[in-house]
Computed example of a mutant assay.
Amino acid sequence: MTARLETMPTDWQRALAIVAHPDDLEYGTAAAIAGWTDERREISYLLVTRGEAGIDTLDPARAAKVREREQRASAAVVGVTSVEFLDHQDGVIQYGPALRRDLAAAIRRHRPELVLTINHHDTWGGTFWNTPDHRAVGRAVLDAAADAGNRWIFPELGDRGLSPWNGVRWVAVSGSPHPTHAVEVSGGIERAVLSLLEHRTYIEALTDEDPESYCRAFIDQVTSTAADRFGGRPAVSFELFPR
């Protein structure tokens, strides 16, 4: 029997969502974020790239501008106004100290209790191979949550006025093939669909399907899949790593 998903913690106020590309958060996680902003929780986004390699028909320099604009519009739909980009190179993000340093710096700046990212595992459900960017960023997020609190790792951050932050209590991974927790999202589903739809240029290059139908079907699939293990309620699932 598949275990029931536990309810996500609610005793937090600030979260930082760190992902590789524009649109990563919109494939489900945004439904949860919409509910959290309704509760007046503070959510910020950090994109490691601008997704410049994601649209075959657009030159990377042009794609970066389009995808940044679409990401900011997408975030606004679910009540997020803080959106930052790190400018690592899309498609070839390298896991290592440089990435960990950048993420630790962001965590020290934002001082979140909850850090969000997406699937860092090798596959999506054991079927589809995950991208190297997702794997690199997800693993670096898990490490940087600890790095941010250790003054002797990346001491140069302290010289920049970024004092250690050991207040991250959880890292929550969406899209994981090993979910442990979930959050009910019935109030955020429509905004999640509209948030994903803001990535229209990317979606139109990705599929011949009507963009709104594509977005609605994807969000419905994600939230119904989690519902099967969450009392039948529309939900988004996470693999939760406490610290």
Score class of each variant (00 low, 15 high):
4 R>L: 14
6 E>W: 03
6 E>R: 10
9 P>L: 09
10 T>C: 07
11 D>V: 03
12 W>F: 12
14 R>T: 06
15 A>G: 06
19 V>G: 08
20 A>P: 07
21 H>W: 11
25 L>V: 08
26 E>T: 09
27 Y>T: 13
31 A>M: 04
33 I>F: 14
41 R>N: 01
41 R>K: 07
42 E>Y: 02
44 S>N: 03
49 T>K: 01
50 R>Q: 00
52 E>S: 00
53 A>F: 03
55 I>V: 12
57 T>N: 02
57 T>H: 02
58 L>F: 00
58 L>R: 00
60 P>N: 04
63 A>Q: 02
65 K>H: 08
65 K>L: 05
65 K>S: 05
67 R>E: 01
68 E>Y: 01
69 R>L: 15
70 E>A: 05
70 E>L: 06
71 Q>V: 02
73 A>T: 07
74 S>I: 10
75 A>G: 06
76 A>M: 07
79 G>D: 14
79 G>N: 13
79 G>C: 14
80 V>E: 13
80 V>K: 14
81 T>H: 09
81 T>D: 09
82 S>E: 15
83 V>A: 05
85 F>L: 07
87 D>T: 04
89 Q>R: 11
90 D>A: 05
97 P>V: 00
98 A>G: 11
98 A>C: 07
99 L>Y: 08
100 R>L: 05
101 R>P: 08
103 L>G: 12
104 A>F: 10
105 A>Y: 09
106 A>K: 12
107 I>Q: 08
109 R>Q: 10
111 R>N: 11
113 E>W: 03
118 I>C: 12
118 I>L: 14
119 N>T: 15
121 H>F: 10
122 D>G: 11
123 T>I: 12
123 T>Y: 11
123 T>L: 12
128 F>R: 13
129 W>H: 14
132 P>M: 06
132 P>Q: 06
135 R>D: 06
137 V>N: 15
138 G>S: 03
140 A>K: 04
141 V>F: 05
141 V>M: 04
142 L>Q: 13
143 D>S: 09
145 A>I: 02
149 G>F: 01
151 R>L: 09
151 R>Y: 06
152 W>Q: 10
153 I>A: 09
154 F>Y: 13
154 F>R: 10
154 F>G: 11
157 L>H: 06
159 D>L: 15
160 R>Q: 15
163 S>L: 14
163 S>Q: 13
163 S>P: 08
167 G>D: 10
169 R>P: 01
169 R>L: 01
171 V>N: 06
172 A>R: 10
173 V>M: 01
176 S>M: 03
179 P>D: 08
180 T>H: 03
181 H>P: 14
181 H>A: 04
182 A>I: 10
184 E>D: 04
184 E>N: 03
187 G>V: 05
188 G>P: 15
191 R>Q: 14
193 V>Y: 00
194 L>C: 13
195 S>C: 14
197 L>T: 14
201 T>W: 01
204 E>T: 15
204 E>A: 07
206 L>G: 05
206 L>Y: 09
207 T>W: 00
207 T>K: 01
210 D>V: 11
211 P>I: 04
212 E>V: 13
213 S>G: 12
214 Y>E: 04
216 R>I: 13
216 R>E: 04
217 A>H: 14
219 I>M: 05
219 I>S: 03
226 A>Q: 12
229 R>K: 06
232 G>D: 02
234 P>L: 13
237 S>M: 06
237 S>F: 07
237 S>C: 06
238 F>M: 04
238 F>I: 03
238 F>Q: 02
239 E>G: 09
241 F>S: 15
241 F>W: 15
242 P>N: 11
